[in-house]
């Protein structure tokens, strides 16, 4: 409804604009057409903008407002200014969670991109049964994060998990995937990689298929070997895919929740606590929703800063052949 009414408002405005220019006696074809085009563009954008406004911007402003309050989520909160942010600075668990999130992002992002690119190159070649391999790698994308993490718990359970049973049957010592701090972190990273490599592969595969095969032919004629073709042709040519994946992987990693929540709950002793699980604990277990919102705002700022820096510094987000 709103979309339609704004479109009709736009039409009325256009009519008024057209009359004014006609009265001026100047040739007015071009500006009128451009104006009409942009109005049509805005009309098409309106539904999305409304959705974004209601479901993204409004809650975002709400979160900022809540982050300035002391509230348990029931009834009106009390405004406490920047008190929640001051508490964050002094809170060791917040810093531990920040560090864990950064470490998780720093490991998962490059590794899933590298694996994704490697597999994509393999599956873009004349590998037998590549359709089957592609499907197998993409299947995790179709499974929810919670289901993936539940499979993870079956594998990494330190009493009955498949992995430790295998290690024991080989006469090797079992690993304390759940009660050992480092092992727990590794288990979360491994399950995330299993989940995410398929997505990275898919995007890279699309990127690879957009590369003109003549470029490789030219490179071969110039005497480039396989590695040189990969390093100096494939890698730069999938630049836009890499840029997109870097942003997406970093954002996904900053926002990691379901896998950690289901597999380790942030434990043992906060060894796998990340910003979103810590925000959840504060918001819905401790019921300190103002503090939880403050963590959310910090996360938002970190994500936006990263995206802005990367956007400005990226030279190969839109390359041309």
């Amino acid at each position: 409804m709103t979309g339609m009414s704004s479109a009709s408002t736009a039409l009325r405005k256009r009519a008024a604009y057209g009359t004014a220019t006609a009265d001026g006696g100047k040739p007015s074809r071009r500006p009128t057409r451009r104006y009409r085009e942009s109005l049509v563009g805005y009309a098409f954008l309106t539904p999305t903008l409304i959705l974004l406004g209601v479901f993204v911007l409004l809650p975002l402003v709400g979160a900022v407002v809540i982050s300035l309050q002391k509230t348990n989520g029931f009834g009106a909160g009390t405004f406490t200014g920047l008190e929640n942010y001051a508490r964050l600075v002094r809170d060791p668990v917040f810093w531990r969670s920040t560090l864990n999130t950064a470490l998780f992002t720093a490991i998962v992002t490059p590794v899933s991109m590298l694996l994704g690119l490697g597999v994509a190159v393999l599956l873009n070649s004349v590998l037998p049964a590549r359709g089957l391999f592609r499907s197998i790698l993409i299947v995790p994308m179709a499974i929810s994060g919670v289901a993936t993490a539940l499979i993870g718990t079956l594998v990494f359970d330190q009493n009955n998990g498949v992995l430790d049973k295998m290690l024991r049957s080989l006469g090797l010592p079992a690993i304390q995937w759940q009660s050992g701090s480092t092992a727990a972190f590794v288990s979360v990273v491994l399950v995330t990689l299993w989940w995410r490599v398929g997505f990275n592969m898919l995007i890279y595969l699309a990127g690879l298929q957009g590369i003109n095969p003549y470029l490789y032919e030219a490179a071969r004629l110039d005497g480039a070997n396989g590695w040189q073709q990969f390093r100096y042709l494939t890698v730069p040519m999938v630049g836009p895919s890499s840029f997109f994946l870097l942003i997406m992987n970093v954002i996904y990693s900053f926002q990691v929740f379901d896998i950690v929540f289901v597999m380790t709950g942030g434990g043992p002793q906060n060894a796998t606590s990340v910003l979103v699980t810590y925000a959840y604990d504060n918001g819905f277990v401790t019921r300190d929703q103002g503090y939880a919102a403050a963590i959310g705002v910090v996360l938002l700022l970190a994500t936006m800063t990263f995206t802005a820096v990367r956007w400005r510094s990226s030279r190969n987000r839109d390359p041309v052949e």
Partner: peptide, 8 residues
């Protein structure tokens, strides 16, 4: 050891 209070 995975029977602690924060275990999943």
């Amino acid at each position: 050891q995975n029977n602690s209070v924060k275990s999943t």
